Simulated scan of single mutants.
Amino acid sequence: MDRHVGPGGRPLRVALFSGNYNYVKDGANQALNRLVGRMLVRGDVIPRVYSPVSTTPAFPPTGDLVAVPSVAIPGRAEYRLGLGLFGAARADLEAFAPDVVHLSAPDLLGHRAKRWAREHRLPVVASVHTRFETYGDYYRLGWLRERAERLLQRFYRDLDEIYAPTEGMARVLVEGGFSERVRIWSRGVDHALFHPGRRDMAWRRSLGIDDSAFVIGFVGRLVLEKGLDVVAAAAQALTAMGISHRLLIVGDGPARERFVSEVPQALFTGFLTGEALARAYASFDLFLNPSITETFGNVTLEAMACAVPVVAADAVGSSSLVADGVSGRLVPPGDAAAFAVAIAAYAADPALRAAHGRAGLALAANHEWDRVNDAVIDRYPLLVAATSQKR
C-alpha cells in the first residue's frame, strides 16, 4: 500500500511513546508492536518508538526503538519508569520531526511528550491500555483512587482523541470525565496461532493430568492486580463443594511465591509464548479471568479463539467479549463464591463446555489485527489535516 499522506506527499511520521514497549511482555505492548508492524507494512506511515529499554528484553521490538532515560520501579524492578524527554532521546525526536504524537501511558514520559507536542502544535492522541486508577485497591492504597482519577482526567481531557479497546471502556472514559473524543481501537488475535487444533492431551499427561480431569486455566502475570486472590478463593470453594478439578497457571511474576502458598495443588508452567502458549490455552477445559484492571481482555480473546469457554469478571476488560450464557459466564467482580458456582456448572456438563467454546470461537473470528489497527492509523492524517486548518 502506498498512500503518502504527510506534508509534501511524504509518508506521515508518528512518534509513539510507551512505558514498556518490549522489556516485559504484556497485552498492552504486544498491541503496540502490532500497531507499529501494521504501519510498516502499509508504508504510508513511518513510526518511531520512544520507551525505556532493558538489557534483557522479553522480545525483539517491532520498528525503530529509541531508549529514553529510565530507572527501575522500586518494588517492581521488572518495570522501568521513564524519567522524561531530554538528552539524546529529545534530540532524536526533534530530528525525526513527527506529524502526530501517540501516547500509550499517562506516566512522566507521556506528560513530557504531550508538552513537547503542544509546543510544536502537533495533534496528540493516546490509547488507553490499563485502568491505572484501580491499582491502589490491590495494595491497600484505595484512598489514592480519587486523586489518580483526577490526574488521569487532566492528562486525557484535552487530547485530540483517545482510543479505547471496547465500547464499555469508552463509556467509562466519557462518563468519568476523561474525554468526550473517544474512538474504538479494538484488539485482534492471531488465528493462525491460537486455534482449537492446538489441544494436546499428551502434553497434559506430561504434567500429570488425567485425560478425564477438568482443567481450569489462568494466564497472566502473577501480580495482585490480576485477581489472584479470587482465583485462590474460587479454587478453595470448588474443593469445598466437592468439584474435582486441576488448576493450571501459566505465567510468572513477583506474587508467585505468595500465590503458590494459596493454591498448593495448582500446576505452574511459568511464562509460555508462541505455540507453547497456544497449546496451553487449547488444552484448558475452562479459562478463568477475574481481573478488572485491563481495558481489554487479550487473554480472554485468545482463550475464545481456542474454543475454550470463559468465566470472567463482569468488567470492561471482558464484558465486551464474553456473551454471558452463550460463550461463557460473567460474574460480579471479586465474588469468589459466584465464580465457583459458574465454574461448577461447566465441570458437570461437558456438552455445555463444548457449546460455549464453539460460540466463543465464532465471536473471536470477528477480531482481525489488520482491520482494527487500520482504524487507528487512518485517523492520523485526518487529525493532521484538522490541526493544520486551525493554525
Rank of each mutant, 00 (worst) to 15 (best):
M1S: 15
T293P: 08
S320V: 03
V182E: 01
L103W: 06
N29Y: 00
Y138K: 04
P7D: 12
R112G: 06
G357P: 09
V41Q: 13
A105S: 14
M169I: 11
R48S: 03
R140S: 13
A337R: 14
V215P: 11
A192T: 11
L12D: 03
V308H: 09
V215H: 09
L141E: 12
R154P: 04
A126N: 11
I292H: 10
L330W: 01
L277Y: 07
F296A: 10
V331T: 10
G82E: 03
D107Q: 08
G274H: 07
A362S: 14
S320N: 12
A113R: 08
L361Y: 06
A303W: 02
E149S: 08
S318T: 11
A213N: 12
S206I: 02
R199I: 02
P106H: 01
A336C: 06
S54L: 05
A31I: 12
Y135E: 02
G6P: 04
G325H: 11
D335T: 09
S127N: 02
V231H: 09
P332I: 01
G9T: 01
D64F: 11
D285W: 06
P381H: 01
L12P: 10
D99R: 01
A315D: 12
L35V: 09
D64A: 15
A113S: 10
E302T: 03
A240R: 14
